[in-house]
Design a protein around this nucleic acid. Sequence first.
DNA 1: CCAATTGTTCAAGAACTTTTGAACTAAGGA
DNA 2: TCCTTAGTTCAAAAGTTCTTGAACAATTGG
Lengths: 118, 118
Amino acid sequence: MTLPHPNTDQISLPIVLGVLGDPTRLAIVRYLASKEGVPLSCSRFLDLASKTNLSYHLAKLREAGVTRAEVVGTNRMITLRRADLDARFPGLLDSVIAAAGGDPALPAVGGHDLEVPA
Amino acid sequence: MTLPHPNTDQISLPIVLGVLGDPTRLAIVRYLASKEGVPLSCSRFLDLASKTNLSYHLAKLREAGVTRAEVVGTNRMITLRRADLDARFPGLLDSVIAAAGGDPALPAVGGHDLEVPA
DNA sequence: CCAATTGTTCAAGAACTTTTGAACTAAGGA
DNA sequence: TCCTTAGTTCAAAAGTTCTTGAACAATTGG
């Protein structure tokens, strides 16, 4: 079972900007960027919003083409679509992340990579 | 009579992103960027929205700190706050404008600079 | 099989944003 | 002074987006 994602050339600038204009979603992206390459499960973001609400925000990010979600067993592994975003809008993600500031506003939480919850 | 503008350090990233996430406002910014340095009167944007609606969108841009509006007689001259945005969020404006594409979707309309309407 | 875990969907409500027209202000020119 | 031009403000309507809880689905472990 795979989830719908736009392909690179379908990613729209106003939609991406609008999606990043929400503080919860910006925090998610910031955190993903700080853990670049490590797929994180949805539950890693539970400090930012309720489970239902996270589902909503993560769907917005996915539908906008900002993140990719892969179903792995009972988890959904989320990654930033950095290469696609860099290809489509060079420099945009970097400047947004830099502008958002150094440290992501989320607990570091322990552990060996591939962050399936403990 | 001067209008309220946030100062540079009050400009907020999510607010700027949210404001640029609207196609009408993105088009305004694109056009301002293409005429960098030339103050444009509000009426230059009448192809993008009705007069009332423009007033609304231009106020959003101004309140977010993206544009500056100066009252000159019966006109309001609008400029991009490029230096302030570059100082606060380096590279962001450039990558947004580059991502938005080459040619601004607005008639070039004739003329000698300082674009007060004909 | 049963229970727990992970996450979704649905429907409702609250809260914003956008768009509109009518009425207005303020400056400038005849 | 009166008229025009440039743009605003207000209030209402329309449309979106966000948040919530309750109910659901799928996978894994005992």
